[in-house]
């Protein structure tokens, strides 16, 4: 199972990255099974993202990051608050994704800021963005102000959000009994407290089962509608 963190932090070390890592560890712990966690650091992709905006195509490193996000079973997205909203770099990354890439994808939203006064940025800016992108955003967003790193409460919020995201991830799949019958793979026992997990049979094929995925079974990623169908749809 693949969990991808998108971090828009700019400094090194970055509290945005710190929050992303913490959410990823908590989610992986809750999900059980083997979780492949990848981190996309937007700082390293800033120039390629700008070039994509002007040229229309992604460079090699950005292309790899987009592939990671596209193939992720779940996303954790973390932005610093800049001028009362998500950062421009954060938004630009999601601007260059193809339409539909995030449709149906479980997403945990998080943000960092200098003070608690901007905590609602998650609700008035980040959540509507991902609603537009048709992602499935978990109810708990995690905001960490500077003071939160030395106070009580953050751990509980991280844990609650991680549990909500883990519940939306596909069930961990046990190793096949024999290589000749991979379809016989049985999901591991659900962890306690995850009553809302998806049906195991569907969860085993997260991509094909997800609505509006542009993949449609072709290795090249193209969605091909036979021409007769396209023409017939226009007949008055």
């Amino acid at each position: 199972m693949k969990l991808v963190v998108v971090s828009a932090g700019l400094s090194v070390p970055s509290s945005t990255r710190l929050l992303g890592d913490r959410l990823a560890a908590a989610t992986a712990g809750r999900a059980g099974g083997s979780v492949d966690v990848r981190v996309v650091e937007l700082r390293d992709l800033a120039v390629e993202i700008a070039h994509n905006l002007t040229n229309g195509f992604p460079g090699p490193a950005l292309s790899a990051a987009i592939d990671d996000v596209t193939s992720a079973d779940g996303l954790i997205v973390v932005t610093p608050v800049f001028s009362a909203s998500y950062s421009g770099l954060f938004k630009s990354f999601f601007d260059v994704l193809d339409q539909g890439v995030l449709a149906g994808k479980p997403v945990l939203i998080a943000a960092t800021g200098g003070s608690g006064r901007h905590s609602l940025v998650l609700e008035h800016a980040v959540r509507p963005l991902f609603a537009y992108l048709r992602a499935v955003v978990v109810p708990t967003g995690v905001y960490a102000a500077s003071e939160d790193w030395g106070a009580e409460g953050l751990a509980e919020r991280v844990d609650r959000a991680a549990g909500e995201l883990a519940a939306l991830l596909p069930a961990p799949v046990a190793a096949p009994v024999s290589s000749s019958a991979p379809e016989a793979a049985v999901p591991a026992q659900p962890a306690a407290g995850r009553a809302d997990r998806p049906i195991a049979g569907q969860a085993a094929q997260p991509v094909a089962g997800r609505p509006d995925q542009p993949i449609a079974g072709r290795a090249d990623g193209f969605h091909v509608v036979p021409f007769e169908e396209q023409l017939a749809a226009l007949r008055p």
């Binding site: 070039h51 002007t54 195509f57």
Partner: peptide
């Protein structure tokens, strides 16, 4: 494509 990638980057990609 001006004011974007360098000539070298564009030639490579």
């Amino acid at each position: 494509y001006g004011h974007g990638p360098s000539l070298e980057e564009f030639t490579e990609q």
